[in-house]
Amino acid sequence: MTDPIPLPRRDMSDKGLPGNVKVTREDWLRVAMDLLVSDGVSEVKVLTIGNRLEVSRSSFYWYFKSRKDLLNQLLAEWERTNTGIMVAAAEAPAPTITAALNGFFRCIIDPDGFNHQLDFAVREWARRDGAVRRVIDRSDSARTDALARMFMRYGYDPAEADIRARVLYYQQIGYYALELNETLEERLSRVRLYLYAFTGVYPSEDEVEELRAFSRQVAAR
């Protein structure tokens, strides 16, 4: 079982909720995402979520018209968070291209940032649903376009920026897909040359150490 998806949660004793409704829309989405990651979309069921939240089905209908509506909102939340987080990281200002790439990696490393388990759960869902596949394609394009713009801000030709963006993005998604048996220190030992390989520019020692320190800090949480 994976850790629950960190959507905001309201106090269950909140008197502002209508009638006998004990949970919020975010609670329903949080558990739905947890089920999607752990068991797949077929197990994202109203009754199952209600049982986990210990509420009746009537609570569900305060926020969603149907299970299909829940799934649509779940997909929209994934696009808002995972894709939004990655695009924001690519657009963040930085003094150098290697510092900008560090910012991208921080969003990937931070468990409160890009959720790769959720990303793969949605991709698995897309294998059986053409509409979801189209949303995946749109998100992949938005992510690679943002990374290409990141490279162009630092003087890369648009064609080269596009290729570098694709190599960077495909490598990162593939890294998670392969589930490599690599220790943190092994990966961190390659930071300097990773940054060089993706940019063609050697990073400063401060930039290398900044990413290493951030990675160790996250691992120690």
Rank of each mutant, 00 (worst) to 15 (best):
E79S: 15
R221E: 04
A32C: 10
V218T: 07
S66Q: 05
Y176M: 11
G84Y: 09
R164L: 14
Y156C: 03
I85G: 01
I97W: 04
R149A: 15
D69T: 07
Y175M: 12
T48P: 00
D3W: 08
R57K: 15
V55F: 10
W62F: 11
T98G: 01
I49W: 11
L29T: 05
C107H: 07
R25H: 04
L36I: 08
E207A: 08
R67G: 04
Q217D: 05
I109V: 14
S66D: 04
T144Q: 08
A76H: 07
A126E: 05
L188M: 13
T144P: 00
A159T: 09
L180Q: 09
S58Y: 04
M150T: 04
A220C: 04
D162G: 06
A92Q: 14
N20E: 07
L47D: 06
A220G: 09
W28A: 14
Q73M: 13
R67M: 05
G40N: 07
L53M: 07
S13Q: 11
P8F: 13
Y169S: 11
T24S: 15
A92F: 05
A94W: 03
M1A: 13
T48L: 14
L101F: 06
V167A: 13
N20G: 13
S13T: 12
G200M: 11
Y196E: 08
A89K: 09
G16C: 07
D3Y: 12
D69L: 11
E186R: 14
E43W: 00
T2P: 00
L75Y: 03
L178P: 00
G40C: 07
A90I: 09
L118H: 13
S38R: 15
F114P: 00
P158A: 15
P203N: 11
L147E: 01
A121V: 03
L75K: 05
V44S: 06
S38A: 15
R187K: 13
C107R: 12
A148N: 05
L188T: 00
D112M: 14
S204A: 11
F151K: 06
